[in-house]
Write a protein that binds this DNA or RNA. Sequence first.
DNA 1: TACCGCATGTAAACGGTTACATGATTAC
DNA 2: GTAATCATGTAACCGTTTACATGCGGTA
Lengths: 181, 181
Amino acid sequence: MSGYDIRVSLGSINWLIDVPSYGSLYPALHSLREEGLVNVSIVPNDGKPSRKVYSITAAGSRALEAWSHRPAEADISQKAFVMRLLLANSFSSEQLSEYLKQRYALVTARCSELERSVKRDTIEVGSEGDRLALDYGLAIANAEIAWLKATLARFPGAIQEGKQSIKSSAHQSVELKEDYG
Amino acid sequence: MSGYDIRVSLGSINWLIDVPSYGSLYPALHSLREEGLVNVSIVPNDGKPSRKVYSITAAGSRALEAWSHRPAEADISQKAFVMRLLLANSFSSEQLSEYLKQRYALVTARCSELERSVKRDTIEVGSEGDRLALDYGLAIANAEIAWLKATLARFPGAIQEGKQSIKSSAHQSVELKEDYG
DNA sequence: TACCGCATGTAAACGGTTACATGATTAC
DNA sequence: GTAATCATGTAACCGTTTACATGCGGTA
């Protein structure tokens, strides 16, 4: 794709991932080319500036694979998690499963921590706004847990006993409480 | 609270909001004081540096209120949305309801846009990773829609007909399809 | 002995956005 | 005729993080 194309296609899901501006995207592509991780082919474009269509090199594929398999930092953000998911092509079923389990452990930890701090008042949960925000956070976290459970069921990793086939994971209410990770 | 306290208390929900580092938090508090929006009281602290406990002034309250009521930018991020929710104390029931309805309109729009692009292939939805990421996005968006519906039912704004009393909104599966905003 | 928690603060470094430059074409 | 789309690119700007400075007390 061209830099422009990349920006436009990512722009349609800007709320799911961090989309770079042209001011950082174009220089990034230049340096990737200098490092030999991508090739450029100039495609003349009547009137408009000629398109520079980038394609990944063998070295680039290796680097990308290394990047996506690098150990997940403990406190990964939602957007970074989705970005990694987008690159899940080079994941084997086991690796994907492992990755999702790590996320599962993280989110359940956050969730139970939040529930604890709502019951006690470790944090000042005095105001209406605080309660609203925490309730929202809990709802989102629980939805993510449900999705992770459903998706883990669809991509059973190395060893897994209770296989269930599930078609669509969105909209789905699943009982929680199991322990991955 | 002191700058340290602010950081620590916000740090426990760092995945829900953007938490500033000390390097930007302390200077921010200094400039707020210069603008007369907060007061400081120095509390001596045996051995450790004395604590600087900040409290909001009348002018500060007005500025905060103005900030939280300023028209919501169209493409607000999840974290910014939660930050505003945290300050929902100065919202009237009508204002809160209005704010949630705006959010509802935004998220439903994103959701249906995503569904469209999954069915057709406006975006290249070729790879496994793409499908996973979009499925995840859809699940999260639907969860947010459900939460917004439930919360709007709890905080009925000015005019609203079908009142239902709902105790806890998390974990809840709600039918979608209604039109707020 | 070494490190973590408490508690504040500053300056350099870094990374990203914003704004600008260019220019032909199509839509209102 | 005015704006928006296509398409690339650079440089100034700006906010944020990182790293450092200080220093006492508890603990592994």
